[in-house]
């Protein structure tokens, strides 16, 4: 998925990034660049990674989330996850990363 679809919305100090489709090692590269670009230009207080529209994610997807957590932390931004599937939660738990992120449910 070279042209990963991604929807970025800003609401005050809150930046929401919602990728679509599949997150694997291949697609993670372009997603990383696009999320970081949005993060560094908006410099929000809260970055929400909305995973509601993700059809597939493996541990490369988790790597993407952990990397964004690291980058956001460096600029004092909190990272929250939204719309995690049961499978995504299972992957987060395998790495103990479920304790790292605040997980929001979709309104």
């Amino acid at each position: 998925m070279a042209n990963s679809r991604i929807v970025v919305t800003t609401d005050g100090a809150r930046l929401t990034v919602a990728p679509r489709g599949e997150i694997d090692h291949h697609s993670a590269r372009s997603l990383r660049e696009r999320i970081d670009s949005a993060l560094y230009s908006a410099r929000p207080e809260v970055l929400v990674l909305d995973l509601s529209h993700i059809d597939f994610m493996d541990s490369s997807g988790l790597g993407l989330l952990l990397g964004r957590y690291q980058r956001a932390s460096e600029i004092g931004c909190e990272v929250r996850l939204m719309g995690c599937s049961a499978r995504t939660k299972r992957i987060l738990e395998l790495a103990g990363a479920d304790k790292l992120f605040k997980i929001e449910e979709r309104a």
Partner: peptide, 22 residues
């Protein structure tokens, strides 16, 4: 081993084999 990775960038989780096993 879970969380073992040779990656230094912080972009790899090191749980590939743990996912396969799970």
């Amino acid at each position: 081993e879970p969380l073992f990775t040779t990656d230094k960038s912080g972009e790899r989780s090191g749980i590939g084999f743990a996912v396969m096993q799970s």
